[in-house]
Simulated assay, not measured.
Amino acid sequence: MPAPQKKILFCLAGAFSFVCALGAAAAVGTQLWVRGSILCTTGALLVNASGPELEKFIGEIQYGLFHGQRVRQCGLGGRPFQFSFFPDLLKIIPASIHVSVILFCTVLIIFTLVGMGFFLYNAFGSPYETLHGPVGLYLWSFISCSCGCLIMILFSSEVKIHHLSEKIANFKEKTFTFKTHSERFADSFWIILACSLVHFLNALLIRLAGFEFPFSKPKDSGTATGAADLMY
């Protein structure tokens, strides 16, 4: 591929990486990772609520990696309540998984920026070492994509397997018991998925620029020719 087209592809990949870094940084700071509704089972059982009456006992919850908000509905109107994970909820949540999610988000942002720098370096500079050249670009893209996948896997397990929403809803509750009524991942979670897909796309752009994948085995015609020459 001609050099100008390679520069365009590398610049495009660098721009994608920069957008991903900004998106991931914005996603980490928001509380739009999970949205759902919580049912006050104690209040609903006391009045034997059903049908339209049950809506008076369904509140809302949304949270991110650091803070969130829930609206407590027990038949007497909504009561909003703000909460933060550090240090309030550390005793009731799987802290190791939650900290790992934050750690991998940080690694994702850092390596995305590193990848952006090396894409631009390959576009306008003269790379001379392995990690500065195409192999390095594959490496940064692979690490960033893997971090994004790990973030989604760990956070999904924290929410679904460890019932994070219910634990938050029942935090400091002594009279009423809450149960998750509905739950879905919100915008910030899908931003991380989009970042992972973009890093995979960057790897395809590197291949489109004419560079083989690191573990591919090109045909070594020189060895076969040399062996044939020794026979004569």
Score class of each variant (00 low, 15 high):
9 L>C: 08
10 F>S: 10
11 C>K: 04
12 L>I: 12
13 A>L: 13
14 G>Q: 02
15 A>Q: 10
16 F>G: 04
17 S>A: 15
17 S>H: 14
18 F>A: 12
21 A>I: 05
21 A>R: 03
21 A>N: 02
24 A>S: 02
25 A>Y: 07
30 T>N: 13
34 V>C: 08
35 R>Q: 08
35 R>K: 15
36 G>P: 08
39 L>Y: 11
39 L>F: 12
41 T>S: 15
43 G>Q: 08
43 G>K: 07
44 A>C: 09
46 L>T: 12
47 V>H: 12
48 N>R: 04
49 A>R: 12
49 A>F: 14
49 A>D: 14
50 S>G: 00
51 G>W: 10
52 P>T: 10
52 P>W: 14
52 P>S: 14
53 E>I: 08
54 L>R: 10
54 L>I: 10
54 L>E: 13
54 L>K: 12
54 L>T: 07
58 I>R: 02
59 G>E: 08
64 G>P: 05
66 F>T: 00
68 G>R: 09
71 V>N: 08
71 V>Q: 06
73 Q>I: 01
73 Q>N: 04
73 Q>D: 01
75 G>W: 14
78 G>M: 03
78 G>I: 02
78 G>C: 05
79 R>T: 00
80 P>I: 00
84 S>E: 14
85 F>H: 11
88 D>N: 07
89 L>K: 02
94 P>L: 05
95 A>D: 03
96 S>M: 08
96 S>Y: 03
99 V>R: 00
99 V>T: 07
100 S>F: 05
104 F>K: 12
105 C>Q: 14
106 T>D: 09
107 V>L: 13
109 I>Q: 05
111 F>A: 04
114 V>H: 06
115 G>R: 11
120 L>T: 06
123 A>S: 01
126 S>T: 11
127 P>V: 12
128 Y>V: 14
130 T>E: 15
131 L>A: 15
135 V>M: 14
136 G>T: 15
138 Y>G: 00
139 L>N: 04
141 S>G: 10
142 F>M: 11
143 I>K: 04
146 S>I: 01
149 C>W: 14
150 L>I: 15
151 I>H: 12
151 I>T: 07
154 L>E: 15
158 E>V: 01
158 E>R: 00
161 I>Y: 15
166 E>F: 09
167 K>S: 02
167 K>G: 02
167 K>V: 00
168 I>V: 13
168 I>R: 00
175 T>H: 11
176 F>G: 05
178 F>L: 00
178 F>S: 01
180 T>R: 07
182 S>T: 10
182 S>A: 11
184 R>I: 02
191 I>H: 07
192 I>S: 03
192 I>Q: 11
194 A>V: 06
196 S>R: 09
196 S>T: 15
197 L>E: 04
198 V>R: 08
199 H>L: 10
199 H>A: 11
200 F>T: 02
201 L>V: 13
202 N>M: 13
202 N>W: 12
203 A>H: 06
205 L>E: 09
207 R>N: 07
208 L>E: 06
210 G>Y: 05
212 E>Y: 07
218 P>W: 04
218 P>C: 01
222 G>K: 14
224 A>N: 02
225 T>P: 03
225 T>Y: 11
227 A>H: 13
228 A>Q: 12
228 A>L: 06
229 D>H: 09
232 Y>V: 11
